[in-house]
Design a protein around this nucleic acid. Structure first.
Lengths: 205, 205
DNA sequence: CAGCGAACCGGACCATGGTCCGGTTCGTGG
DNA sequence: CCACGAACCGGACCATGGTCCGGTTCGCTG
């Protein structure tokens, strides 16, 4: 996961901060009431009692708003990866960390599948692949793959390849549309991960 | 690839057929002039000299229109897979067919990356995973994986997993945004495929 | 407390994908 | 050649994500 290089993040003005909370709560309320699919920026704005412009100013786009709702939990996963106990955190062999990472993310996705799918899909999304969280995940997995013996280049591509399997849209699709169950997904992830790492080993040998 | 079960596909009325062509040509012209990103349904309609409703009636949505533009080539790949010479067609061992399939698709994607990315991304796309071509690919890969020894269930999930790597959006992202080159992608595909198949072997053993 | 610039707010506005339905055209049976 | 229903056409209409900018509010400073 690593840096993220957040920059100074200047504190918001009091009213801005207040509105931010209001919007977030409103969004949660709207979702609870209409599902993630029914979350309209305008609806959120109205529910929050602010203008649409305010919602966009604060969150940039729909996708980010959705992510913001899950922010806390995602941050926790990130922390666990950076500094938590093995096998998620440092200390375990790469493959185990990789598997643990995928499992954790799958858990997260199963819990919040609808939200995350919506976050990555929505109109105008030039690709959910640019969000800080996604970038961090890519960097982390690539790092593990390098530890496992891949060249930087391969690690990078392989990382992206592996992570598409863990994308919100993908998992949601597999669960909802194709009717697979989480356990199967987990097994598949273990195989993908093992395959990727075995690859490196054989490459080194 | 297999059936597709197209149904009878009733022939279009003469005027409808004529308009279909007109729209397709217009779309090609628009793309040539503004790039795939600039292809708006309205622009196509105007360029074709028909109403917007006509475009939608014929193609259903933006994504399908894009796919229709590439239809011929995609159909050719499909034929090659079903009945062509090995290693793409029947006759070679599963792994080789899998690799050949991926290579062919990567080729296709590299050639028409922009188009396909646009086809899969566009707003309102509940998921490009429902298009006949995508479904056919999934069925085909799952079939190969079963041949290689996977259980039907695993084959299905693994198939989806592998194919996300070959999606238009994904490949375009890797090429354009992350600056990888096609050769690296191909190597990565070989590894993924080999990993998946090796998995099955070890599972059987 | 008064003044002031930066930051913020709201909601009108735009672009675009997608829907709808009244009027038109096709082509078939008599 | 005519009549008629099905299929089709067009473009007005809708929903929604996203942009813009004039007016307002904040909070710091003297």
């Amino acid at each position: 996961m690593l840096p993220l290089a957040d920059g100074p993040a200047p504190p918001l003005r009091a009213d801005a901060q207040r509105n931010r909370e209001r919007v977030l709560c409103a969004a949660a309320r709207v979702i609870e009431h209409s599902g993630a699919a029914g979350l309209t920026m305008e609806a959120v704005a109205e529910e929050a009692g602010v203008g649409k412009g305010t919602v966009f100013r604060r969150f940039g786009d729909r996708s980010s708003l959705l992510h913001a709702l899950l922010d806390e939990e995602e941050r926790r996963l990130q922390d666990a990866v950076i500094a938590g106990p093995p096998p998620l955190g440092p200390g375990a062999p790469p493959l185990e960390r990789l598997i643990a990472f995928g499992d954790a993310r799958l858990d997260h996705l199963v819990r919040h599948g609808e939200l995350l799918a919506a976050a990555e899909l929505g109109p105008g999304s030039t690709a959910g692949d640019q969000h800080p969280v996604a970038v961090a995940a890519r960097v982390h997995v690539a790092y593990l793959l390098r530890l496992a013996g891949h060249s930087p280049d391969c690690a990078s591509v392989m990382s992206s390849a592996l992570l598409t399997f863990l994308s919100g849209a993908q998992v949601h699709h597999l669960l909802a549309d194709e009717g697979h169950d989480p356990a199967t997904l987990r097994v598949t992830w273990h195989r993908l991960a093992a395959g990727a790492v075995a690859d490196a080993a054989q490459q080194v040998a």
